[in-house]
Amino acid sequence: MSYSSSTSSYSDDTDTPSISRSAQRNSLVYKRLSTLPGKNLKKALTDIKDGKLGTPNTTAHFKEDIRDRSNPANTHVVMLDKEHCSFDGVFWIDSEQQLERTFSIIRKEHVISFDLEGVEMGKQGEVALVQVALMNGTVFLFDVLTLGQRVFAAGLKDILESNTFLKVVHDCRRDSEILYHRHQVSLNHVFDLQVAHALLQKKREGNVPIRRYGLQELTHMYIPKHASQRAVDIKYQVRDIFKEGNTEVWRQRPLSKLMIDYSALDVIVLHPIYNSIAPHLQSPFDKRYLRKHFSEQLTYFKDSIKPLYSRNLI
């Protein structure tokens, strides 16, 4: 199908002879089609062939805001309200109906943050929740206890194993282990902030032993105090629960507001920390060093038994 030059030179000037509404609509839709990935493009072209050009079914593919309730694609994916989560943009995913739309949004990203929570960690542990956050602050909490292996088969495994999506993490050793042994997922292409901070500190302070820093410490270092303090306060509340050895709290459904806040924060804070650290680690040496140590983090527990907290990281 071809277009005349008058279509490409269309102006909003009302004094100019107007093009038909149909031609304007077709031009707009085709421009948008050029930005779509293959799967959505194929669906949209099928709609055009069937005479559905410009209908809500077609234009839904162009709206990428998962919070947009006018988009039919978002019917089953609803943001948690303030009664269930203190933060905006957090979505609880516990049904197969929600997975296709959720993964279609995630797949448009280049950098995501990732974490998981388990009833028990280790080779015989049990994953209860997987958290993924986007750069725009949207957070998806995948209820693995409810969905089981289906959530990995539907797309989460591909995302976690992919070289396309950079996964920002903090100390991914146990996460990598439990994913591999319990769900046959080989976590890949990560940016581990624990390692990255250690390298940055070593560059600044010289050849001194660098210990492993916890996420709470990095939150204090890299996030403005007014925001970091709120995150740390929630961490302390949950720490009191964990002190009693109550990891069974992750089995509770519905999960309490405090635990949802805690889970969401674990991935929300990773993006600003990454944005603070990554620009300072761009030399060829830095990149080689990080690749080597990220790989070591991913394989640390997979095939051996090691102490979780070695004295020094580098």
Rank of each mutant, 00 (worst) to 15 (best):
L200T: 01
I305R: 05
D240E: 14
P307C: 00
R291I: 05
R239S: 13
S186A: 09
F301R: 08
R173D: 12
K292H: 15
H189R: 15
I241L: 06
E244C: 11
N207F: 03
I260D: 02
L290V: 12
V195Q: 10
D286F: 07
L265A: 05
G214E: 14
L265G: 09
T299K: 08
S304Q: 13
F191G: 07
E248W: 03
A231K: 04
I234Q: 01
I223W: 01
P224I: 01
D303S: 15
Q237P: 13
H280Q: 13
P307E: 12
D266P: 02
S186F: 07
M259N: 07
Y213V: 03
P254R: 02
H220N: 12
Q297A: 15
K235M: 15
R204A: 12
K203C: 04
I178C: 01
H220P: 03
Q184F: 10
H220R: 13
S304D: 08
Q237F: 09
I273P: 01
R212L: 09
N188C: 09
D233C: 11
K257L: 06
P307A: 03
S295I: 14
L270A: 00
L258H: 01
K287Q: 02
Q229I: 09
L258A: 04
Q216T: 13
D175Q: 04
Y213C: 00
I305D: 05
L298R: 15
A227H: 15
Y222F: 01
H183I: 07
K243W: 12
P224M: 08
A264F: 04
S263C: 00
D175N: 10
V195Y: 07
R253C: 01
V267N: 00
S256D: 04
P224T: 08
D266G: 01
I273D: 04
D240H: 11
H183R: 11
F242S: 11
F301V: 02
Y300S: 12
G206L: 05
R239I: 11
E244H: 12
F301E: 09
E296K: 14
I241V: 12
Q216N: 06
V267Y: 02
N275S: 01
R253W: 03
D233R: 13
N246E: 05
F191S: 04
P209R: 07
I210P: 03
Y222L: 00
V190E: 06
Y213H: 00
Q194T: 09
V249D: 06
Q252A: 09
E217L: 09
D303T: 14
R204M: 06
S186N: 13
R204S: 10
L258C: 01
L270R: 03
D192Q: 06
R230Y: 11
